[in-house]
Amino acid sequence: MTEPSEVTSFDPDQLQEDFKRYYKDHFDRTILHRIFKNKPFGTREFAVLRMDMNTWVRNRSFENMDVLIEYLTLYPAKGVYIGALYEEPLTREKTIHNTKWMGRELLFDLDMDAYDPVRTCECSGRKVCEICWVHMQEAALIIDDTLRIDFGFSDLVWVYTGGRGYHCWVLDDSTFTLTRDQRVAIISYMQLIIGDEVKELGPNEKFMKNRILNHLARNFVTHSKESLLKEEAGFGTTTAKRMKDKIETVSSPREILELAPNTDDFFKGVIKHRYPRIDQGVSVDLKKVIRMPGSVHFGTRNVSEIIDNPWDFNPIFHAKSIYEVMGDE
């Protein structure tokens, strides 16, 4: 119910040693090769949250992967993060503020936190269960589909963060130098919920509705209580009950729509309760650092890993802790 859980009691010294050993012997280098493609390594910003000092080390770059790993072997990292690519290696003098920015991947950040207002289980905050993780799976489906079909991107990498969410890295070359405004344009197209309001569908309304219907409608009915169908999706008492009864036997999503008394209300309800809630900041901030795939999530001790099928992945069953990776447990 509460996995992936936060591990709270530990021997701090042992833990630091464990983390260092993970990076020394078990860190999967192919992950960074995959993420960075052919881009330079030595002028990339890394940020490290140090376990020993509990402070942030930012504005760092490492000559190559060996040097990075050496650092992580020497100093225990509570978290390791990747920023943008710069023209020169970053130092105390050459910071991200006065060194030329060369680009960064287009990123999307999904976190269970954002779903608190619409979770149908008992979880909130950091808790995650099988029921609410479906939100993450659905979001990955919709975002993957949108990025490929609407934007024509093809080089997408999905990453489980080790905690309560996913990151999607868009690695198509044309995205690397997108400006903030261009990223805002893309994300504003992909976000349909702002605050607690559902915004009007703009371009591609028809295709978007198909996508919503195919990927989200069934789960919406299955996971929503009758009262919610009534309050948020335009159902009456009878139709809501009939819908809940029939949902198991409905063969195509179209049938669900036919049972809805008002399609507009129905779509509004589905969007509000199931559509992806992306953290805009990560996508539009050109210099923000983001958890390094392959690093360890301190709160859960899970490894952040690249996953092929985020729509099937569930951390409760599939997440690997560093102890599993290191073969200690």
Binding site: D150, F151, Y189
Partner: peptide
């Protein structure tokens, strides 16, 4: 890459496909 947020936001008469 040339589409502003304004263009992409509410305009029902445009279609976005394969970039």
């Amino acid at each position: 890459r040339y589409a502003s947020a304004h263009l992409l936001r509410r305009n029902k008469r445009i279609i976005i496909y394969k970039g």
